[in-house]
């Protein structure tokens, strides 16, 4: 549900009248988060990865849209060179003033799967990373390719991820705005997993919606006419 600043279909109720959250479909979360990431000036390809990550987290019981929003706010105004990872064998670190963008990191990890820089056999140390919980969906994608679970160890816990889900201290990692961590091959998660959570706080949705609206263009008379206005509909 995107709260539109110029929605002609209704007069918007005051915020205080709204329920505290809304249930979205995974598709809606992905679409909204993709647009919001693009509105926050990620490239279209990176924005698609952000939408995928947020949707995956919700499907695995983690509030990915809130994590993405926090990350996009933190990243605002930073150049790619400041947030992209410097990739090396055994160690990935921030190339600029950092921390590493978790979407850029996740996409790069996924891209380097099967290449020497992405090898996990000897362990890979990474960081510092902004909103590190957003990396889990990409680790799941890597696990699928590797046919092996991936273990993420951070100061305060560890999380095991495979192509089906996660187990471990996801709650603790979710609360971290920034962390460094180690990646290695792990054992498969215990299978209990978390049920999906598609409940999103209105405040999060509103803020993501505001970012998403930056991808849109205000109407002109001409665009309205092209969309079919001004012609009779009653045949």
């Amino acid at each position: 549900m995107i709260m539109e600043p110029n929605d002609p279909t209704r007069t918007g109720p005051a915020i205080s009248d709204l329920p505290p959250s809304a249930v979205l479909s995974r598709n809606e979360i992905e679409a909204l988060c993709t647009k919001a990431a693009r509105g926050a000036s990620l490239s279209w390809g990176q924005a698609e990865e952000a939408g995928f990550a947020a949707g995956w987290l919700h499907a695995h019981g983690i509030d990915g849209s809130a994590a993405l929003l926090a990350h996009l706010h933190r990243r605002a105004g930073m150049a790619w060179a400041d947030v992209c990872p410097a990739v090396g064998i055994g160690r990935w670190q921030a190339r600029g003033r950092g921390p590493i963008c978790s979407i850029a990191l996740g996409a790069a990890l996924s891209d380097h799967c099967g290449l020497p820089e992405g090898a996990l056999n000897e362990g890979l140390s990474v960081g510092p990373v902004s909103q590190p919980i957003l990396v889990l969906p990409f680790l799941s994608r890597m696990a699928e390719v590797l046919g092996h679970a991936v273990l993420l160890c951070f100061d305060g816990g560890e999380i095991c991820v495979d192509s089906h889900g996660t187990s471990g201290d996801t709650g603790r990692l979710t609360r971290l705005a920034e962390a460094s961590f180690g990646l290695s091959l792990g054992t498969h998660p215990d299978g209990s997993g978390c049920p999906p959570v598609y409940d999103c706080a209105h405040a999060t949705l509103t803020a993501l919606g505001d970012l998403a609206m930056r991808t849109t263009v205000p109407p002109s008379e001409r665009s309205r006419a092209d969309a079919g206005a001004g012609t009779a509909d009653n045949d």
Binding site: I2, W44, M213, T216, V217, P218, R222, R224, D226, A227
Partner: peptide
């Protein structure tokens, strides 16, 4: 190609005469 703020619907603009091309869809 752009998305209208009004209805979040895809629309087609004229680059030479309309504003909004910096928000072009891919």
């Amino acid at each position: 190609w752009y998305v209208s703020e009004e209805k979040l619907e895809p629309r087609l603009g004229e680059r030479a005469t309309e504003t909004g091309a910096e928000r072009e869809q891919p």
